[in-house]
Design a protein around this nucleic acid. Sequence first.
DNA 1: CATATGTATGTAATATCATAACAGGTCAAC
DNA 2: GTTGACCTGTTATGATATTACATACATATG
Lengths: 172, 172
Amino acid sequence: MPAPHDPAHCPGCATPDLAFAAHDHAHCAADALQRAEAITAANGARLTPVRRRVLEILLEDHRALGAYDVLARLAADGYGNQPPIAYRALEFLVEQGLAHRIQRLNAFTACAHPGEAHAPAFLICRVCQSVAEATATSARSALDAEAAQLGFTIERSTIEALGLCPACQDQP
Amino acid sequence: MPAPHDPAHCPGCATPDLAFAAHDHAHCAADALQRAEAITAANGARLTPVRRRVLEILLEDHRALGAYDVLARLAADGYGNQPPIAYRALEFLVEQGLAHRIQRLNAFTACAHPGEAHAPAFLICRVCQSVAEATATSARSALDAEAAQLGFTIERSTIEALGLCPACQDQP
DNA sequence: CATATGTATGTAATATCATAACAGGTCAAC
DNA sequence: GTTGACCTGTTATGATATTACATACATATG
Ligand SMILES: [Zn+2]
Ligand SMILES: [Zn+2]
Ligand SMILES: [Zn+2]
Ligand SMILES: [Zn+2]
């Protein structure tokens, strides 16, 4: 088990929204898993083996996986291979704030900021399929303001963008 | 054929984002259809009977319809009843900027500002299912700025919000 | 007018994504 | 040790979307 560490002094943790930047992803993933344990415990929820495994799979890289992709991986690991197995675990992770659903892709990705209140925006590279979770605080406030003008109360928002990540802009 | 009119002096046209406001929706829809004729003509595209009918169906109110809902309506009108009939017409309308896809609902809605460059945000009421197309210019700029910081270039964005429209907030 | 070409529509088959409903297992509280 | 809550396994089905190919229509050209 990795030693607990202080995010404020960790080079990996200091850089936000690092999906597109070179970073110690093993650290990134291990840290997320460790937080997941703490968060679920605090919520009185159980991070069971399947659920934990699904999170590990999502954490393998900064991409989004469809439920059936996850399911195939689970089946290979000896878990059940029927859709509800994957959908239930994914739903749990989303409820606990450990994963997000990407509407545009009908897919799921691990949350980059578990346990922190945040308004995420997702930047999806149409070439390499990587997905970065950016902070959309200002976009979200602008949206709230616009909605308020029309008398609409926002409960949940979806902010996603499709385009080219830094790496894929350089080799067209 | 309705007489052409000057949007700047038309009460219906003067109020933007009127989905939630009481308005002359017949005017709203007729105007959109008339614009659609002009836009497709200008683009050298053909607003054929099916395509026109699909747009009319979407314009019936400020809601989003699934492809199969549209398809059922088309079939009732004597058009083909296989999925591609609906999907192709919808795709055409989206390409021409006459309709938008609502990712969250797997559904389509008529564009409220056809022919105008605009960054739309969709406000979806979870009670009455109405969908308002708001202008998300400032939210979109904020998103562009955040993306630019990460070196990401946005090509298309999806901004959607789920919540309560003014009418549904009053009767909970 | 005849025919070639591009574009639109009709249809069948299939792929992909998602949920309902129920059965059985685990675990802790009582 | 029984109860009840929750989790997992399984079957079946529903909802959304695309591929591939055939046919019909428009219009451009000889
Ligand atoms: Zn990482
Ligand atoms: Zn997140
Ligand atoms: Zn209207
Ligand atoms: Zn629009």
